[in-house]
Design a binder for these strands. Structure first.
Lengths: 200, 200
DNA sequence: GTCTATATCTCGATAGAC
DNA sequence: GTCTATCGAGATATAGAC
């Protein structure tokens, strides 16, 4: 971690550490060490630990929004939903740490919750738009219920990975093979749900 | 928080604070204040912050195991699965904080992961036992995949609650009405999956 | 068992030399 | 822009009176 623009290196280091141990579990000194600079340099580039964290979040938010925009929105409900979920899976496979970061901040009652809720809200709107013709506006089959379920099914695999690895005899759930298997499982579930909803 | 055995009060205070802000986000002073004792008394009853946390986890683990044992295991796959999920939902409605605590520690790469994996393992074994006759031993439809999915569907609602509240116009997702609705949704999904698996 | 007082450390953040 | 040095606050943990 000694190549490239120092400000960028610090951001990368903060990203890795925050998403591994949470904001409260990481000191600015830790970040500096990993970035290969001294602590005071971190404060030169980012005026506080808090701002540093916000910049980490912001970078993810931008990447996330860009991916969502690029998803083709043609076809029937099933095609759109599968494509949307594939795009999201692609995104988190490229950005493992994003899911952990967001989950950790939501779970720990972060002060940055409004900023985080923007990202969650983007996904929710998409799911709502895709399912709008197929499900009621309220009640147990409303789009928002399915949104939470899809998010749980997809995210939980990545969040539980450290615990699953121990349970599955040490195999890495994040290796290419298991990840592909998980993706198939998710699509199978989506088909099962759409089928019962009468969408296809 | 000034009634009962002091050691118990300290444990309760630690439970509430750790599960709300994470272990690193809480100081022993915070715990002492909430328990209505002085900081040194916390160290008298528990020799370190770390031991205090382990005792909090242990108490949940015991309660969790007791609930799992009490679930009736008769009937067909569908009955058993619905009953199992209801029992788990009952448990986390009574122990909201447990889910947050476990998730936070898994996500943040806790040093206590082995202890936590025990609780996850208990659930996994149950799901595996219930589904064993209905799904293959490996691949995208293996029981372990469904275990992760069920866990995600159920847990995620409680974990995302703070962010959902903001998105749903301020309504509390943990109030009795929304919780009942969520439970219906979960059972609907279980039926959809069993139906496609050919279980009923 | 609970307290006050304190030792020791590490934190976030700043000052100022280079 | 990056460093050394340091500040003041707050952290974990302990000593010892009561």
């Amino acid at each position: 971690m000694t190549n490239g623009d120092p400000a960028e290196r610090i951001l990368d280091a903060a990203d890795e550490l925050f998403s591994a141990r949470g904001i409260a579990g990481v000191s600015v000194r830790d970040v500096a060490e990993r970035a290969g600079v001294k602590k005071a340099s971190v404060f030169y580039h980012y005026k506080s630990k808090d701002e540093l964290f916000e910049r980490v979040l912001e970078r993810y938010y931008t990447a996330h929004a860009r991916v969502l925009e690029s998803v083709d929105s043609g076809g029937d409900v099933s095609e759109r939903l599968h494509r949307f979920i594939d795009a999201y899976l692609d995104f988190i496979e490229d950005h493992h740490r994003y899911v952990r970061l967001v989950q950790m901040e939501i779970t720990s009652g972060s002060a940055h919750l409004p900023q985080i809720a923007r990202g969650v809200g983007l996904l929710h709107e998409r799911v709502q738009a895709i399912l709008s013709g197929l499900v009621p506006d309220s009640g147990p089959l409303a789009a928002r219920q399915f949104f939470v379920s899809f998010a749980g099914i997809v995210n939980n695999y990545y969040l539980y990975a450290p615990a699953l690895s121990a349970m599955w005899g040490g195999a890495d759930p994040l290796a290419a093979g298991p990840r592909r298997e998980r993706r198939e499982h998710v699509h199978w579930i989506v088909d099962a749900l759409l089928s019962r909803l009468g969408g296809k």
